[in-house]
């Protein structure tokens, strides 16, 4: 057992590092895109709404793997060559950002219209109503689905092994090929993903707890 871990853990941990980089980088990228595209899709200005809609539908409606191949193998033909890690972060971010945009939009839409009207009746500008009244109420609604998306993003990092990055799954494959200890190796790999998912979900729950602290009175 100890010998098994001594042999396999270091390369897997090296892979985990890449998985974490992709998860964090892709997550930040997704967060920014989700916020921008989610707000843009609700805009009354068509020139904002349109590109956001195209972005969301294209990235939701096509395979993440093919998107990855496009960015890594096809874009160089148009003179754009990106390093594998950057490509991975970008594609994972774009992909989760498209789903995230829908989470943002739907949460904002679920804040009752009366909140906007009360804000306008108090002569607040629409930007201020959004910032001070609507978003604080929408944020708690966004978090549970956002938690799912973050875990989904983390699991999707395995796809990036297809463009030469040796993240966790790739590292496991390499070890398996070298030692043929298939069952324990993949069991360990699953366990690492599982623990990582639990850590991410616990993080999201903490944020959830923080943004709903004003409801501490709620029994």
């Amino acid at each position: 057992m100890i010998e098994f871990l001594q042999t396999h853990l270091p390369p897997l941990v090296a892979g985990l590092r890449v998985t974490l980089q992709l998860t964090v980088g892709g997550g930040i990228c997704a967060l920014v895109l989700a916020a921008l595209a989610g707000l843009a899709r609700r805009s009354s200005r068509r020139w904002l709404r349109w590109p956001a809609t195209v972005y969301v539908e294209v990235f939701r409606g096509t395979s993440a793997m093919v998107q990855l191949f496009w960015f890594y193998f096809a874009l160089p033909f148009f003179g754009v060559s990106l390093p594998a890690l950057v490509t991975g972060v970008l594609v994972l971010g774009l992909n989760s950002g498209a789903y995230g945009a829908e989470v943002v939009r739907s949460a904002i839409d679920h804040v009752p219209r009366g909140q906007w009207e009360a804000g306008r009746a108090l002569n607040l500008s629409d930007q201020r109503i959004l910032l001070r009244i609507v978003l604080p109420q929408a944020l708690p609604m966004m978090l549970p689905p956002a938690g799912n998306l973050v875990v989904e993003l983390m699991k999707n990092t395995a796809l990036v092994s297809l463009i030469t990055l040796s993240e966790l799954t790739f590292a496991a494959q390499v070890q398996r090929a070298a030692t043929l200890e298939t069952v324990p190796l993949f069991a360990l790999t699953l366990l690492i993903y599982f623990v990582l998912a639990q850590v991410l979900l616990a993080g999201v729950r903490r944020i959830e707890h923080y943004v709903t602290r004003h409801r501490g009175s709620r029994a």
């Binding site: 009366g114 009244i133 109420q137």
Partner: peptide
């Protein structure tokens, strides 16, 4: 308003 629309947060 009929339904108050206080800001719950």
């Amino acid at each position: 308003f009929q339904h108050f629309h206080l800001f719950p947060h």
